[in-house]
Computed example of a mutant assay.
Amino acid sequence: MIVTVTLNPAIDISYRVNNFKINKGHRVENGNKTAGGKGLNVSRVLKQLGEHPHCLGFLGGSNGKWIKRQLEIEGLEGSFTQIKEETRTCLAFIDEENSTQTELMEKCPTVSEEEKEEFLETYQQQFKKATLIIASGSLPSWLDSSFYKDMSKLAKEQNIPFILDTSGEPLKLGIEGNPFLIKPNQEELTQFAGKELKTMEDMVEVAIRICNQGVQNVLLSLGEGGAILVRKDVILKANIPSIPVVNPVGSGDSMIAGMAYSINNNLVLEECLRMACACGMANAMEEKTGFVQSQMIKQLLKEINITSID
């Protein structure tokens, strides 16, 4: 069973507003309302691939109840830690006419020490069935930046692969927990390195250094440039075809889902990278976030070329 962790979920509501202007009223159609969070996007794609992921995280108030009901409607199971404060709401105003997107993101709810300990207890209870754990997204402000590091160490003690998809200080410290795989993009890897990474060689050099620190796999997502998978004994480059991009949001989460699915089904490394890229691309071709079509994945798998880098 694959376990996904979303520590900072939200109700995401998006409105399409042509010619959006500040200090002006706009009439809009009903907004698109979803249970948001990177780990939840990963879970959706995993389910579409045939897995039955188990979701963990914090939920509170009426918003938390709505998210839980929505996930049940989608057929996603979870063991969420209930908190006293209200789960946040995030608004997005999409202006297709001017190619802009304006977002209003509420501050995340505060979680007590008791609620945090309850979550960690629930997390460790999943070790009995978990074959792989995925932690995605930024850390809420009330959690110490080393929280992912601690989670990774707990999983490693049980020999459960831990995949981490985050950025900034949580990524830097999370690497110290020796996760099985991390998935930075070029911007996140540059931030980690503390210097500009201009070439593929520069990025691979930093990825190798991360592997030497104890991370088994570094998956570099390069957008239309494909992806690079780095580990101590091999470096693979995925070259991808051009596609019509409809909505790239959630493509990184879909990559993680494709990689996790492949690992969980014991595919060889080249096929793991191929599936990760196919899922990321398939998501980018859809209007919905965290949505892929199996037929499109099958087609894309044939068009992705994997090469080895010396």
Rank of each mutant, 00 (worst) to 15 (best):
L40M: 08
G137S: 07
L46S: 02
N217V: 00
S141L: 10
V3M: 09
Q101L: 10
Q126A: 13
L236N: 03
E169F: 02
C108L: 06
S254R: 11
C108W: 05
V234Y: 00
I297F: 11
S308K: 15
T6G: 07
C90H: 02
F127E: 08
E103N: 11
G252T: 03
K68I: 12
R27G: 07
S62E: 10
A130Y: 07
M255Q: 15
N283T: 12
S99E: 14
P161D: 01
L46M: 04
I297P: 03
A284D: 04
T190F: 05
K128R: 11
E270L: 01
T6D: 09
E77G: 13
S221R: 08
L300G: 02
T81L: 10
Q293A: 07
Q186W: 05
V206D: 03
K84S: 12
M285E: 02
H26A: 03
S167G: 03
L104A: 15
L236H: 04
L154H: 08
G252H: 02
L164G: 11
N19W: 10
K68D: 15
A155V: 01
E51S: 06
S62W: 07
I309F: 05
E169Y: 05
N30M: 09
E115K: 08
V292N: 09
I263K: 03
G75F: 04
Q216N: 12
A282I: 07
K38C: 00
V218W: 00
I83W: 08
N264S: 12
F291V: 13
I240N: 13
T289A: 15
A135W: 08
E113W: 05
N41L: 05
A284W: 04
K298M: 13
V42A: 01
E157T: 09
V45C: 11
N8I: 05
S14D: 08
N19P: 08
N247W: 13
E270M: 02
K198D: 10
E188G: 02
E157N: 13
I83D: 04
D202M: 14
S141W: 07
N8W: 08
Y261D: 09
I263E: 03
T87F: 14
L40N: 02
E86W: 12
W142I: 14
I67A: 12
I73P: 03
F192I: 00
T34N: 06
A35M: 07
Q82F: 07
S112R: 04
Q293N: 10
I243N: 02
Q101Y: 08
D310I: 03
I67T: 12
N19A: 10
S112H: 05
